[in-house]
């Protein structure tokens, strides 16, 4: 790290030139007020961008282990069932989203024998494209979500962890367990500022053939984005709307606030 960068208040910004700029920066994690060298970046900026990209690249290859100290207490207390898609390696997972949307045959069997069908709510946890997001956010969010759902009188199915998971796996879960609603907590593609951003995809009675137009999304769940309790409230509000209108998708506008113009996580 260069000397200039060592004093930065925020990890992703080079040191400010003066106190005034520092206060301004507190309103956004975006890399504003960088200064310039000609029309290039200052050296500290150039190298910081490289360092953050390196960290994001390396975060992709983290493997979630439910017995890892960060997840074991949660995994044991909730008796989380680990299953997998047909993408059997990280390389396949990245290159073949079609396989990541389908449960492996063995997983379907394991779910049939290990989970109760027809629940009000089925929660899935998927590694997606950022295992680090799951490790960081799910132990905080999941217990609140379960408690909130139960407080609203919803029956909650056994929690599933889906390895090499794409969003479309929602449909397969719908086919196998026929829950009324499914919530998928999945790691978003890692950004430069954070590799810890989680998305919640929500679907009402998902079935084979459903697309993103049938789903709702709360993205950017992380420390500088949507907070855990806010996310839980928004998920529960959506579920209430689904129940009321007997559908999910883009025709459901968020009660208190899916998707942006672009989806953050491919289906």
């Amino acid at each position: 790290m260069t000397g200039e960068n060592a004093g930065a208040e925020r990890g992703n910004l080079p040191a400010p030139r003066d106190g005034e700029q520092l206060r301004l920066r507190e309103v956004t994690p975006a890399r504003v007020l960088l200064g310039r060298a000609g029309l290039g970046y200052r050296t500290a900026t150039q190298l910081r961008l490289r360092a953050d990209h390196a960290a994001a690249r390396d975060a992709l290859s983290v493997r979630i282990d439910l017995d890892d100290p960060a997840l074991a207490p949660l995994s044991r207390s909730l008796d989380i069932l680990e299953v997998a898609t047909r993408a059997d390696s990280l390389a396949t997972h990245l290159a073949r989203p079609d396989l990541g949307r389908l449960l492996s045959d063995e997983s379907v069997e394991r779910i049939r024998s290990g989970c109760a069908p027809d629940m009000d709510l089925q929660i899935l946890v998927g590694d997606g494209l950022s295992p680090q997001a799951v490790i960081t956010q799910v132990p905080l969010l999941l217990p609140l979500l379960i408690a909130g759902a139960e407080a609203r009188g919803l029956s909650v199915g056994r929690i599933l962890f889906v390895r090499h998971c794409r969003v479309g796996v929602l449909n397969d879960i719908g086919e196998v367990l026929a829950p009324r609603a499914v919530v998928l907590l999945v790691g978003e593609r890692p950004g430069l500022a954070t590799a810890e951003s989680l998305s919640a995809y929500l679907a009402w009675q998902p079935r084979s053939g459903h697309t993103d137009a049938d789903r709702n999304l709360i993205s950017n769940i992380h420390v500088d984005g949507v907070g855990i309790s806010d996310a839980v409230t928004r998920i529960l509000d959506f579920l209430g709307e689904f129940r009321l209108r007997d559908r999910s998708g883009f025709t459901i506008k968020e009660p208190a606030r899916p998707g942006t113009g672009r989806t953050v996580q491919e289906r």
Partner: peptide, 20 residues
């Protein structure tokens, strides 16, 4: 700003890049 989209989590071209 700085090529880093902090909401969509990807890198595009920056103000520096475009002006350059």
């Amino acid at each position: 700003p700085g090529s880093d989209d902090v909401m969509l989590n990807y890198q595009s071209t920056s103000f520096h890049d475009a002006a350059g």
